[in-house]
Computed example of a mutant assay.
Amino acid sequence: MEMASGSSFLRTLAIIILSYYLFKFLMRIFAPIIMQKAVNKMQEKMQEQFKQQQEQQNKTSQPEHSIPKEKKVVGDYIDYEELK
């Protein structure tokens, strides 16, 4: 096994630190844009679901071809009491 020299260690450490700060800088720029797109997409999905629910409620509450049913006359209702 070979030992790493001090200069290669410092170079690797500098690359890691620079990568970290570059990532941090880019996230400050792009994170708000990404979050805004995610929020807009979620809002569109919720509006679509709301519209579907409204359409379903309208279909179930107002039948299109409702025919009024005639009541059958079967006579008077008689309430019987039990005798002991």
Rank of each mutant, 00 (worst) to 15 (best):
M3T: 10
L22S: 09
K51N: 07
L10T: 02
A38K: 13
T60V: 14
K84T: 05
K41V: 03
G75W: 01
Y20A: 13
M35W: 05
I16H: 11
Y80A: 03
L22M: 11
I34F: 10
V74H: 06
K45A: 10
K51F: 15
R28A: 03
K71T: 00
M3R: 13
D76M: 03
A14Y: 03
L18M: 14
K24P: 00
Y77S: 08
I29M: 09
H65I: 04
Q47V: 02
K69Q: 10
S8I: 04
S61C: 12
P68M: 00
Q43V: 00
Q52C: 00
H65L: 08
K71V: 00
K24C: 02
R28K: 08
A31W: 06
M46T: 04
S19H: 02
A31S: 08
K71G: 00
F9P: 00
K37C: 11
E48T: 11
F9Q: 06
L10G: 07
S66Q: 14
Y80S: 05
S7A: 14
K69C: 02
P32F: 06
I15G: 03
S5C: 15
E82N: 11
K51L: 04
M42S: 09
E70W: 00
P63D: 06
R11I: 00
V74W: 02
Y77G: 04
Y21M: 09
E2D: 12
P32L: 15
Q36L: 13
Q47H: 02
E48Q: 10
T12N: 11
Q53P: 01
P68Q: 01
K69E: 04
I29N: 14
A38H: 08
D79G: 01
Y20W: 06
M42G: 06
S66A: 13
P68V: 00
K37T: 15
E55D: 13
Q54V: 14
T12R: 11
V39I: 10
K59M: 14
L10N: 05
Q53E: 08
P32Q: 07
Q54N: 10
Q57A: 12
A14G: 01
V39N: 08
F23Q: 05
Q57D: 10
E2S: 14
I17S: 13
E55C: 05
K24A: 07
K24V: 02
K72V: 01
E70N: 09
Q54D: 12
S5W: 11
Q54S: 14
F25E: 08
E44H: 06
E82D: 09
Q47C: 05
M35I: 03
A4W: 08
A4Y: 12
Y80P: 00
K72P: 01
E82K: 15
S5P: 08
F25P: 01
D79E: 10
M35G: 03
K84Q: 02
F30K: 11
